[in-house]
Structures are given as C-alpha cells and as structure tokens.
C-alpha cells in the first residue's frame, strides 16, 4: 500500500513520518514516533485511553488517521513534565491522590484533564460528566476525580478557591 508523508509538532518537537493512509494516529504516535505513553484500549473511541491534545483539543487518536494530523500540534503524556523532569501540577495531583493503579488508562485521563484545566475549575459533578468519556477499571474513579479537583487548586490558588465554590454551589 502506498505511503504518504506526515509532519507534526509533537511535545514541541517537529517530527515527520511516512505512513499508509489507513494508519491511525495512535499507531503513528506509538510505532513511528516511538512515544508509547499513549495507549490503545478499544480502537473504537469509547475508552479514551488514547486521548491526546491535538491543537489544544482532547481527541481520540484511535479514531483519526495519521494523515489527518498533517501540520498539527500534538501533546501527549510525555510532554507534560518540564524539560528538567519537574512534574506538571496535574501529574503531582494524580500521584498525591493515588489516582491510578495499573496506569493503563492514566495517559488518557491525564490528557482529558489537561484540556479541562485550560478551561478552568468545575464542580465535582460537572467534572465527573467531563471525565465520563474515559474508562478506568481499577480505581472506581473517586481518586481520579479527587486528583483532578486537586489539580484545579494547584494550577493557581484562585482557581482552587473557584473550584471549591463551584462544588459548594452544586451541592
């Protein structure tokens, strides 16, 4: 099958590949770019394990072809920590709240949550709705919700108070 070039900027680095048009974005990221932090859980867009940020939006990389990402900016879990290894507040919050066990779904939750952080704090109920596109089989979700709520507070102190207020208001 013929191949086509694909150029992306992933975690700040320009990369190119040469792929069959039928190759999914997640397979391109994992196999061609060798960034295996993004996981494949269902290949039909339900579990959210393959979620990445594409031009800032959380998308399922199993439901896109690599060639559709031509020229796009992609962020994956490998791009969350700083270049010095300093964890992102979201990573710290996940760690401190025991927000994962086996860790297979974690990259997807992390990228979904990263997009949510950009939009500002949510009430716990709204957050649960926002996270309902990602499946976790280990935790029962409570610790993931706690982790993201905590991260809302860590990004800026004001955001934390707003999150508390939003939760309070929802109750």
């Amino acid at each position: 099958m013929s191949r086509r070039p694909v150029h992306v900027k992933i975690n700040g680095v320009e990369r190119e590949g040469y792929v069959e048009p039928r190759k999914t974005l997640v397979d391109f990221i994992r196999e061609d770019l060798e960034l295996t932090g993004t996981h494949v859980g269902c290949e039909h867009g339900v579990c959210g394990a393959c979620t990445v940020l594409l031009d800032g939006e959380a998308v399922r990389s199993c439901l896109m072809f690599a060639v559709q990402a031509e020229g796009c900016e992609i962020r994956t879990i490998e791009g969350m920590a700083g270049p010095d290894g300093q964890l992102h507040p979201l990573q710290e919050a996940f760690r401190d709240n025991h927000s994962f066990q086996c860790g297979f779904c974690t990259p997807g939750f992390m990228m979904t949550a990263a997009a949510l952080l950009e939009e500002g704090p949510l009430s716990e109920e709204d957050l649960r709705h926002e996270l309902s596109g990602n499946l976790c089989r280990c935790t029962g979700y409570q610790s993931i919700v706690a982790g993201v709520m905590d991260a809302f507070g860590r990004s800026t102190p004001a955001a934390g108070q707003a999150a508390d207020a939003a939760t309070e208001a929802a109750r």
């Binding site: 960034l35 295996t36 932090g37 490998e78 297979f104």
Partner: peptide, 16 residues
C-alpha cells in the same frame, strides 16, 4: 508509590 513516576510520565513499559 515507587511505580508512579514512570507511569505519570508515559514511561511505563506495557506489553504493547
């Protein structure tokens, strides 16, 4: 957890 840092940074090593 000792496991956390590698998982949080996408450096876990799963079978795939």
């Amino acid at each position: 957890r000792v496991e956390d840092r590698r998982i949080l940074t996408g450096r876990g090593r799963y079978i795939d």
